[in-house]
Each structure stands twice: as C-alpha cells, then as structure tokens.
Design a protein around this nucleic acid. Structure first.
Lengths: 209, 209
DNA sequence: GTTGGCATGTTAGCACCGTAAACATAACGA
DNA sequence: TCGTTATGTTTACGGTGCTAACATGCCAAC
C-alpha cells in the first residue's frame, strides 16, 4: 500500500513521511467549517499526529502556513475556471459561465476564498498562483470583445467584470445578499445590465436567452 | 473641564469614567494600522489604562467588542454616503459619487471596512447599522431609474451596483488591483460599461461628461 | 448625613496559543 | 559503514481570552 519504499505502516513511527501535505490537507478540510482565524497550528499538528514544533520544519511560521493554504485555493480556482469555460464553449457563454463558477467557488468554500484574497500577492507577473485565474479572465474577455479592441479597453473591461463578480460573491458569503444561484445569474447576466441601466441607456435588443 | 460633576482629574482614580467609549476609540485608531485579527483585548485595556477583565463589564467578549467596532464603522459609512450624494446633487451624478465615496471609505480604512462585512448582520429590516447605507443605495437607485420601474428591477439594479463597487473596493485594498482613484472613476463610470460591452451592446451615445 | 446596594473596577489563575532552544531519530550519500 | 542532514521530540517562555473572587466608590433610600 505505501508508495514509498521500506515504509512501515506502524502507526507510531518517528517520521511521519509527509507532514507538509498532511497539514495542508487537514487545513483545507478545517477551512470548510471554520474561519482561518480559528485555525490553530497546534490543533493541526495534533490532528496530523505530530508535535507542534514539527510544523516549523515545513513552514516558517503560521503566516507561511496560511499562505500555502491560500495558494492551494488559488490553484483549485484556476482549474475550475478553465473547466467551466471549456464546458460552455468560450465566447460570451464561456465568459459568464466562468463568472458563475467564480461565485460558486466562493460560496462553496467561503473561508478559503477569503483567505486567498487576504494573503495572496497581486497577480503581478501573471505567473504566481492567483495570476493564472486572472490571466484566464483576460483571455476570456479577449474572446468576447471585438478583435480590434485596444488593450487599455480590455483591461478596464476585465477589472469591471472581476469587480462585479468578486463583489457579488463576497456580499453573498458575508450574508449581505442571499446566496441564491439564480440570483447570481440574474445579476451577472443580461438582466443585471438591463436593470441597472434605464431604457435609453440599456443594451440594444439582441440575442436574449 | 470635566463634564461630570465631582470628577477629579487625578490620573490614578479607581473608576475610569467611560471605558466603553475609550476602548472603541482606541480600537478604531488601532484598526487604522493593524488587522482586526491583531487587535488584542489586553492590549486595548493596557492602552486605555485599565485592567483587561474590566473590558468584560462593557463587552460580553472579544467578539462583541469587534462587533461594536464594526457598528461604528457602518455608522461612519452611512454618514459619508449621505454627504457625498448631497454634495453631488442626486441623480446619476449623486449615485456615482456615492459609489466613489464607498470605495474611498474602503481604501481609507481597509481593516475597518473588512471588519464591518465580516461581522455585521445582513441589512435585514433596514434598521440595523449596515441597513442605513444599503437603504440609501436603494433610494439613490430610485432617483436614477425611470419613475415607473418595477420594484424587482430596482432590487437587481441595486445589487448589481453594490456588487460592482464592493468588489472594486476589495480588490483594490487586497492589492489585486492598483488602488488608484482615477481608475475607480474609469471602472464605475461610463467608460467601464462602454469597455465592458462591445459596440453593438454598448450604451447609446448620450450625455457624456 | 449615613448607609447599603450595585455598577465598575482589581488581582490571581486557567487553558490555550505561537514560537524558540536543545535534543533524538532515522534516511541517505560518501 | 558512518557521518551529515532532514525531520522529528520535549521543554519552556511570554502572550492571549476569559473566569472567579475580591475591592472601590457612586447614588439613592432612609
């Protein structure tokens, strides 16, 4: 059963084997029920079956542990974004589906989601963990905007939609708005724009699903 | 000088006088520099010049203290929203100014802003602390939408704009977007909508400041 | 006025936390 | 085979939220 050679499966062996992975897994599990502030290093160590100071061999301090958890979350989000867009086939449909997935992720893992934004560095160079999700957002926008759209415009559009979806997600998981999936559709879909802008300003009548 | 009769100003009197107000004031000040998680009850007690358990005469526990701080923040926000709207004279101008003020508040007091949404109950009955600001948002929308707009539509529009502004504020104060005031204007102003929607869908050409 | 009750302070102490220091174990490469 | 090194351990320190028991002094009823 053990993948590592010569690993004895006795419960009380001195070396755990992979404390880091175990702690991250337990941490993610713990975040499904409790706030990140309620996540104690000692508690995690206990649950993993190891002494507390052992964690310091794998994380500089509690902050670093939380950063790592946030990184895991960002990676998960990026994967799910990509899957959602593919599933919907790109274009406007793919983009809004991507937004829905964003909110879905947030509502499904509130504490992790909040932790991510509380700790992750800005997606500066497109390469760090959050960068993947954001870069994907930009690509999706590119799929949607007319081919010749200037880059500046694409950026504003991306920020615009990101803000919209991000705000909606957070207001819902903070209980300020009801966490209702159909409400998400209505707000980020055509109806939202239509409702937000009075008739003379509203969208030209077009493909209305 | 002392407003209370018979109050001696000697520094070392047994009764502080108003621990609650002093603690809230120090707490708000502390939140200007540090995260709410870094706010220690004992530290506040020390700074106010009182023993730690004394705080329990005025707050049930640390949570209640943070709730109170969040309440103070919500009150401040409501006041500033109203002022901003009046200053701009209602209508669309008043509404977007209101949104700008929202973001300005968030950027000016990041920790307090986050604390508010982490702890305040939903604006259920319009009467609690956050209710004031939200009710005001709805009124502003009413000023803007055509007079006969159905209530359902007004609600969606309110959620839409609230999400937009809320998300923008949080992305900025989490460092995911640059905290640039002119960027705020561009995203929540006409340019944002225009950039977000390709020409056939975009706003009809109209009063463009 | 005196006095007794009650709001508001105090000190002492508990269990928990994050983290550092010093030591123990075992995996691994020369 | 044996030292080096990664990875664990125990112990200890100062900080935290919070409770219990006790102290002080304001205020109102006598």
């Amino acid at each position: 059963m053990p993948t590592k050679a010569n690993t004895v499966n006795i419960d009380k062996r001195y070396h755990h084997g992979d404390v880091r992975a175990a702690v991250l897994a337990r941490g993610l599990a713990r975040l499904e029920e409790a706030d990140a502030a309620a996540l104690s290093l000692r508690e995690l160590a206990r649950e993993v079956g190891v002494s507390a100071p052992a964690l310091y061999r794998h994380f500089r301090d509690r902050d670093a542990l939380l950063d790592a958890l946030a990184g895991e979350g960002a990676a998960q989000l990026a994967v799910r974004q990509r899957a959602a867009s593919e599933r919907a086939g790109g274009g406007e449909a793919g983009f809004t589906e991507c937004g829905r997935e964003y909110v879905r992720f947030a509502l499904g893992a509130p504490h992790l989601f909040k932790l991510m934004f509380a700790r992750l560095p800005p997606p500066d160079h497109g390469t760090n963990s959050m960068g993947a999700a954001v870069a994907f957002l930009h690509d999706s926008i590119a799929d949607w905007l007319p081919p010749g759209a200037p880059d500046e415009r694409r950026k504003i559009a991306a920020m615009y939609f990101w803000s919209l979806v991000h705000g909606l997600a957070l207001l819902m998981l903070d209980g300020q708005l009801p966490a209702d999936p159909t409400l998400v559709d209505r707000v980020i879909g055509r109806e939202g724009f239509g409702a937000a802008f009075p008739p003379p300003l509203a969208l030209a009548p077009q493909s209305r699903p």
